[in-house]
Design a protein around this nucleic acid. Structure first.
Lengths: 160, 160
DNA sequence: TTTAAGCTATTCTATATTAAACTATTAGCT
DNA sequence: AGCTAATAGTTTAATATAGAATAGCTTAAA
């Protein structure tokens, strides 16, 4: 099920790891999205509610950075969440460029009800590997998630 | 940078690993997509070309299963690739429900030119972990990518 | 052989997604 | 103060995405 590409040993190792990483992330996401379906929330809507729930109100730019989406996208998704009455927008007085997004009462109730079920699904997905392996995975993914240049910077900083 | 959720030790381990896994996959995908931009191919278009290039012609259903996309989506993306002259569709004579998608000459040239560059980007992304770690990552992700039920089945099969 | 069931692909609807162009606002510099 | 940079958010255009409904085709059963 790995790559069919013929290249150097190292290239093939890289491609196989890359393919498995992407496939794991995509297939888990797909299955979790199905679990979210009864709530009629999309994955991104859920991410935003969850972020606001656990980190508190924040502006759209920060929200976009947290969930790795473009600012235009955040505008749209927050629009839809606002229409559903789950979040509200408040423009900052001190700096009128900023808009603080926060959960409404209904939004809080919704996410606090859904989150435990969602967590259960995640635990269920990850149950096939043990706690040590979870930690190994976490560490490898942490390194990969940072941009190479950022990693180089980290290494540089460490060397002092 | 991990979860702010307060739960059992195991739940927190799971959530942290899950978050890092998703963030690694998403941020790598984002950076690779940027690398693809000069080609004016989208990620899914590239995936489809690459799949046809390395695995040969196949019908849309199979293609969808390979790249983990819905059949309706495949129809659209193949439409766009067809408009660009990169793939062609041929309806099967023996079973007229099937449509075989294959690369055109232009499609083959395009993907064979792009793929090495893309591979270079992937190698560059993964360069921050060594070959042993790549293998570890591959194995863990392989297990996670399968549905739990499929894993159970594998374990059952192994026990014979 | 006709019907039922199942499969493939398309269409349609609603939402997501990014990049780029644009507006409004603020901060910094002279 | 006034000009310039930069920043936050919105809009637009093109593509992606899932899911449900639909149409056409095939196979198996009655």
């Amino acid at each position: 099920m790995g790559t069919h590409y013929r290249g150097s040993r190292h290239e093939i190792n890289v491609l196989n790891a890359y393919i498995k990483l992407m496939r794991a992330a995509n297939s888990i996401t797909g299955r979790l999205a199905k679990g979210l379906k009864p709530t009629s929330l999309t994955m991104t809507q859920f991410s935003i509610l969850e972020t606001l729930y656990h980190l508190g109100p924040m502006n759209q730019r920060t929200l976009g950075a947290k969930v790795l989406k473009s600012s235009g996208n955040i505008t749209l998704v927050v629009d839809n969440l606002e229409k559903s009455g789950l979040v509200k927008r408040v423009r900052s007085r001190s700096d009128r460029r900023f808009i603080t997004v926060s959960l409404t009462k209904k939004g809080k109730e919704t996410i606090s009800e859904i989150f435990p079920d969602y967590l259960f699904l995640i635990v269920n997905e990850m149950e096939v590997i043990d706690d040590n392996e979870l930690k190994t995975l976490e560490n490898l993914c942490k390194i990969l998630g940072l941009h190479k240049r950022e990693n180089d910077k980290l290494i540089l900083e460490k060397s002092y």
